[in-house]
């Protein structure tokens, strides 16, 4: 077993740095011309993919803990969840800048109040008009309250039960994220299908686990030794 202090002082910082890898790489590649001929689109796509991957990783922690019996895995869940939100926010930001801001007219110059208003209208219109954007935005809005209430203070304030109930929203967010991906793909559904399988398996695990626990309470007890 890994000691609590090793987790706290070695493993967690290592995971934290690794989780910053993708954004570090994107910045480096963007500045040195290692992205494609359409780097702005790469930034949007890659941050979106990493948001989805961190949703999957976060959902995998409980099954991993159950199957390996390594309960300390739970200590990484807040971090991976927050990274899902982090990459989701970066993704949204790249969209707002490259897709919306870059397409505005600037009747009063770029640094002007009208730019702010036009940008807000442009983003709002787009969220209203394009279904895949609507569902992507929904996903981010589902992750927002989870990120906000991820602190120990909020767990105390809400109470364990309510906090847990609220954080089940991650299941919904995983499904809407898949839908977002599914709807934006032009013809080749291979990649969204793979992620749908992963998310499906992770959610199924919970169902099966809950059911087997309900039907065999005695065995469950002895198995925890």
């Amino acid at each position: 077993m890994i000691s609590a202090s090793a987790i706290r002082w070695v493993l967690k910082p290592a995971v934290f740095v690794a989780a910053l890898g993708p954004v570090g790489w994107l910045v480096w590649a963007g500045l040195t011309g290692h992205l494609s001929a359409n780097p702005l689109s790469d930034l949007t796509n890659e941050t979106g993919l990493w948001a989805l991957r961190f949703i999957c990783i976060t959902l995998a922690i409980t099954p991993f803990r159950r199957l390996t019996g390594w309960h300390a895995a739970i200590r990484f869940r807040r971090m991976t969840g927050l990274f899902a939100f982090f990459y989701g926010s970066l993704h949204f930001l790249t969209y707002v800048i490259a897709d919306r801001f870059a397409g505005l007219d600037f009747p009063d110059g770029i640094v002007a109040w009208s730019t702010v208003v036009n940008l807000a209208v442009s983003v709002g219109d787009d969220i209203y008009k394009r279904p895949f954007i609507t569902i992507g935005f929904t996903t981010l809005m589902l992750l927002l309250p989870l990120a906000v209430t991820s602190t120990a203070g909020w767990i105390r304030r809400l109470g364990g039960k309510q906090w847990q109930a609220l954080h089940r929203l991650i299941y919904v967010a995983a499904l809407t994220a898949i839908l977002h991906y599914w709807w934006l793909v032009k013809a080749d559904l291979t990649s969204p299908q793979r992620y749908a399988l992963v998310v499906g398996a992770l959610l199924m695990f919970r169902l099966v686990w809950a059911r087997s626990r309900a039907s065999a309470p005695v065995r469950q007890k002895s198995a925890t030794t």
Partner: peptide, 19 residues
């Protein structure tokens, strides 16, 4: 005439920032 997923009013010219 918008495509349901891509607005067709503007475009990104490869190599440029503003659409």
């Amino acid at each position: 005439v918008d495509h349901p997923r891509w607005t067709q009013a503007t475009e990104r010219r490869i190599g440029e920032f503003f659409r």
